[in-house]
Design a protein around this nucleic acid. Structure first.
Lengths: 203, 203
DNA sequence: CACTAATTTAAACGTTTGTTTAAAGTTTTT
DNA sequence: AAAAACTTTAAACAAACGTTTAAATTAGTG
């Protein structure tokens, strides 16, 4: 995980971990400095303010979050395979970073549109030509004719929610961490089966 | 929405609105008092502390949140119909209270198990005999044989996520509020079709 | 009306917050 | 090696925080 040993990188790494698990308002500058093993003033020496550091972390996390998705979008394989791999990779990514979806949703809701536009994610998605592939697949009657937003919602709902709602589902069903992990492995199969079956009814 | 005109109720109502939209750490006692139109000290006069008031709000919201679900569980109708109605009622409830799922998930993750046990939700679900109905439906080959946790995850994922992830999906797709609302109406139909088709393959 | 209890307010409490300052330490440059 | 620039620290800053206090106001009771 540790990419760099510079002071700046130490602060950013510490901030990333703490911001993701506690949110912007849930932690203090001193807590970040302590986690990085240094003085509070250094946080503002390298990054102008707590808010500025936070914006940098959010951008970084968003980039990492979308990168894995866009990589799959770009790959030159049939849409059905791509759908399977997407679900697979999402569960893989989220198993490693289970707190990221909740972090993004909660903290992105506070930001305005201009902040999001700076990230330039939409363009990257467009360049992946995934929309064209879906349109083509729907035209030849392979994929069910559903608008792109709903497809996105179906995929993300079934991939992200199990990680987002982990504490709630664990409480309701009295499941320990390792039990919930096992549940997720099973659930991924159901999700794949259901989504493939629905989006590609002929297969 | 205003149920009562007593000072205590005013504070609780104000606290509920602010806590739900900003979270525990995202607001101050003075902000709650101002929203309720009174002095800060009254918050601690009627409710011991900010934390205590918060616990009361969380409990109240959780109760309201689960009540609508359990009502459907209890009703004496076939499981397929119950599934349709469940999705319908969830979308209806969440359209009115779109911030509640995110609130519950975020803030419940900070609480420990003992807090949840006080709410006594598990017992209410058990009394609804929904598990027995599912088991029976699976036994006669009507419902696909899937464990109860995954069924719950499938239902909740596809109902809650579209509301939880609203800001993110809106940003990615450049959708205004009213456009997203229309999207949700369409999406609910897809979700219903997909889930019914998957859970009850013979129909 | 007088008296008591409950309610509401303004003010202050000690902490903690994000941020800044100024000095000390370290590295780089000349 | 001296000077300049960069890095790190301890200390302090004002502002905001949750909470408490004590006085003022209102409501209830005989």
């Amino acid at each position: 995980m540790v990419k760099d040993h510079t002071t700046e990188a130490k602060i950013k790494d510490a901030a990333r971990n703490i911001f993701i698990s506690k949110g912007f308002n849930g932690c203090t500058s001193r807590e970040i400095a302590k986690e990085a093993g240094m003085n509070v003033a250094l946080v503002n020496y390298y990054f102008k303010s707590k808010g500025h550091l936070f914006d940098i972390v959010v951008s970084s996390v968003m980039k990492e979050f979308t990168l894995s998705m866009i990589d799959i979008f770009k790959s030159n394989i049939p849409l059905i395979n791509k759908t399977r791999i997407f679900i697979d990779k999402e569960y893989e990514f989220l198993s490693k970073h289970p707190e990221i979806p909740n972090f993004i949703i909660t903290e992105l809701g506070k930001k305005d549109k201009s902040f999001f536009e700076l990230l330039d994610i939409n363009n990257e998605i467009k360049e992946a030509k995934i929309f064209e592939q879906i349109e083509e697949s729907q035209k030849i009657g392979e994929m069910r004719k559903i608008d792109i937003v709903s497809i996105m919602l179906l995929m993300m709902s079934n991939c992200h929610f199990p990680f987002i709602a982990k504490p709630m589902v664990q409480m309701i069903n009295s499941l320990k961490d390792d039990e919930y992990e096992k549940q997720l492995v099973i659930h991924k199969q159901y999700v794949t089966e259901m989504i493939i079956g629905y989006l590609f009814p002929t297969k």
